[in-house]
Computed example of a mutant assay.
Amino acid sequence: MPKYLLFGTYCDHVLSKREPYRKAHLEGIKKQKEAGIVVTICPTQDLTKVFGIYEAENEEIVRQLIESDVYWLNGIWTEYEVKEWIQVF
């Protein structure tokens, strides 16, 4: 199954702004992980970027998951890019 990389940007003051949505965000990611779609997803150390690896049938599925996440819907993630990843090893 194809793998996709998520590169995204967090809003300013992410720690305080994400608080009302954090529980719902983590629950959604947990379900995606259990379903085998999310391999990993995490912020950078400086909390400016988000990075994720997805395994899905196509890019549209990944985009739908990102755009239905409470972080996207509430402006915690402010922009994103998805790229198909060719894993060699």
Score class of each variant (00 low, 15 high):
Met1Trp: 02
Pro2Trp: 05
Pro2Glu: 11
Tyr4Asp: 00
Tyr4Lys: 05
Leu6Met: 04
Leu6Phe: 02
Phe7Trp: 08
Phe7Gln: 07
Gly8His: 00
Gly8Gln: 02
Gly8Arg: 00
Tyr10Gln: 01
Cys11Leu: 01
Asp12Lys: 10
His13Ala: 11
Val14Asp: 00
Ser16Ile: 10
Ser16Asn: 14
Ser16Leu: 08
Lys17Phe: 04
Lys17Asn: 00
Pro20Lys: 05
Pro20Glu: 02
Pro20Cys: 09
Arg22Phe: 13
Lys23Cys: 08
Lys23Ile: 15
Ala24Pro: 06
Ala24Ile: 06
Ala24Gly: 08
Ala24Gln: 11
His25Ala: 01
His25Pro: 00
His25Asn: 04
His25Asp: 03
Leu26Ile: 05
Glu27Ala: 12
Glu27Arg: 14
Glu27Gln: 11
Gly28Asp: 07
Ile29Thr: 10
Ile29Phe: 03
Lys30Asp: 08
Lys31Tyr: 06
Gln32Gly: 12
Lys33Trp: 02
Lys33Gln: 05
Glu34Tyr: 03
Glu34Lys: 13
Ala35Pro: 05
Ala35Trp: 04
Gly36Glu: 04
Ile37Trp: 05
Ile37Val: 13
Val38Ala: 00
Val39Glu: 09
Thr40Gln: 15
Thr40Val: 11
Ile41Gly: 03
Ile41Asp: 03
Ile41Cys: 07
Cys42Leu: 15
Cys42Trp: 10
Cys42Gln: 08
Cys42Asp: 11
Cys42Ile: 15
Gln45Trp: 13
Asp46Met: 06
Leu47Cys: 10
Leu47Ser: 13
Thr48His: 14
Lys49Leu: 08
Lys49Thr: 06
Val50Pro: 03
Gly52Cys: 04
Gly52Arg: 01
Ile53Glu: 15
Tyr54Asp: 07
Glu55Ser: 13
Glu55Trp: 08
Ala56Ser: 06
Ala56Asn: 01
Ala56Val: 06
Glu57Leu: 08
Asn58Pro: 02
Asn58Met: 10
Asn58Gln: 04
Asn58Leu: 07
Glu59Phe: 04
Glu59Asp: 06
Glu60Asp: 14
Ile61Met: 14
Ile61Lys: 11
Val62Arg: 01
Arg63Leu: 05
Arg63Thr: 09
Gln64Lys: 13
Ile66Thr: 00
Ile66Asn: 00
Ile66Gly: 00
Ile66Gln: 00
Ile66Leu: 05
Glu67Leu: 08
Glu67His: 07
Glu67Asp: 07
Ser68Ala: 12
Ser68Gln: 15
Val70Glu: 12
Val70Thr: 11
Tyr71Ser: 01
Tyr71His: 02
Leu73His: 09
Asn74Thr: 05
Gly75Tyr: 02
Ile76Lys: 01
Thr78Gln: 06
Thr78Phe: 02
Glu79Lys: 15
Glu79Tyr: 09
Tyr80Gln: 00
Tyr80Cys: 07
Glu81Trp: 09
Val82Phe: 05
Val82Ile: 15
Val82Lys: 09
Lys83Arg: 12
Lys83Asp: 15
Glu84Trp: 07
Glu84Asp: 04
Glu84Ile: 12
Trp85Arg: 07
Ile86Lys: 15
Gln87Cys: 10
Gln87Phe: 11
Gln87Asn: 11
Gln87Ile: 10
Gln87Arg: 06
Val88Asn: 07
Val88Met: 11
Phe89Leu: 14
Phe89Ala: 14
Phe89Thr: 09
Phe89Glu: 14
